[in-house]
Write a protein that binds this DNA or RNA. Structure first.
Length: 320
DNA sequence: AACCCGCTCAACCGCGGAGGG
DNA sequence: GCCCTCCGCGGTTGAGCGGGT
């Protein structure tokens, strides 16, 4: 009955990944790029199912992942996006370039849910506003106007993505389209991208020598990110800066606060990594589209929110 | 010191969509 | 149109850890 488990075979290892397994996986992906996960266990000799390999890569080993505490801005952004999109963690993660959907989901479940609940109880005396807000989080009760707008946004995004995809010169820049094109591998760029992973592994190994217990947990990905970002852009200042500025403005206009610390502090890093060359390389090459920093979704969202702002009555589930 | 309890987060499970034959 | 395979996503679990008693 039902679908058999993807990896119920004997000898398939489960549980936490060892550093050695990480190295094997990263080395393989460095050579072949992410994708074709089915082949990964057999080709690497890992006793893991393909799913496990993909998950390990996308949630942990993939370059560009930021770990550690969420900033206040990130928090607000998650809450806002969760409000708009519901529990579509992958979609939410696409607006937080350095966070994985799993991270965001975990953070929501462990921190933000409680926080909102607390807010809700605190505000109970002032009416049911938070009640409404909180229950809307389950995406069960999306106000009609909001749902329509959401649908409209999706359609607009799809249209734009399509037109971009049909335009051969233009780099694919939209969240949507890069997601759609995430399987298109641009081999010539991969060396840039995955070399950084190899480097990270080297650093990681150093870390393990120093700190065998913890290093596998923290050093890899942070180093991955730093290293990745450094390798991603040093010669792209002008376009990167422009993009960074745009992001800053958009963030501010979209969420009403200063850009994410990560964006700002790594302006020289992250924004540089967003140059047409590097960003498209980095983002499209990954199995999970990090694309995020692309203009289109933000501008659409911004427009959407501005529309909402002009109809405040429909904007009843705004927290901030 | 030993135990309990709550929290965190990496990893797993199962479903559904996409795409190819 | 159907079937199969692969992949991605969201929900859930459980090991590990730290704080409290």
């Amino acid at each position: 009955m039902g679908r058999p488990p993807c990896c119920d075979k004997e000898g398939v290892k489960k549980g936490p990944w060892t550093p050695e397994e990480d190295i094997i996986l990263v080395t393989y992906i460095q050579e072949h790029g992410p994708g074709n996960w089915r082949a990964v266990p057999t080709k690497t000799g890992l006793s893991r199912c393909s799913k496990s390999c993909r998950l390990r890569w996308t949630n942990y080993l993939r370059p560009g992942i930021k770990r550690g505490n969420f900033t206040e801005q990130e928090e607000k952004m998650i809450i806002h996006l969760q409000d708009l999109l519901g529990n579509r963690w992958a979609a939410i993660a696409s607006y937080l370039p350095q966070r994985t959907d799993n991270d965001i989901k975990n953070y929501w479940n462990t921190h933000l849910k409680k926080k909102l609940k607390k807010l809700q109880t605190d505000n109970n005396s002032e009416g049911n506003f938070e009640d409404e807000k909180f229950s809307s989080s389950s995406s069960q009760r999306i106000p009609r106007g909001q749902w329509e707008r959401r649908l409209q946004t999706d359609i607009q995004m799809a249209k734009k993505a399509l037109s971009e995809a049909l335009s051969p010169q233009k780099p694919i820049s939209s969240n949507f389209s890069s997601s759609m094109s995430s399987n298109i591998k641009e081999q010539p760029h991969q060396s840039i991208c995955y070399a950084s992973s190899a480097d990270n592994i080297a650093r990681l190994l150093k870390g393990w020598m120093k700190n065998p217990q913890k290093s596998s947990k923290s050093s890899l990905t942070q180093n991955s990110f730093n290293n990745f970002v450094v390798s991603a852009g040093t010669d792209t200042a002008s376009s990167g800066t422009k993009c960074g500025e745009y992001l800053s403005e958009t963030f501010e206009s979209l969420f009403g606060f200063e850009p994410l610390e990560s964006f700002e502090s790594s302006n020289s890093e992250f924004s540089q990594s967003l140059s047409p060359d590097h960003a498209s390389t980095i983002l499209q090459d990954e199995s999970k589209p990090d694309h995020i920093a692309n203009e289109m979704p933000f501008s659409l969202l911004e427009k959407w929110l501005l529309d909402e702002a002009s109809c405040p009555d429909k904007n009843s589930v705004r927290l901030w």
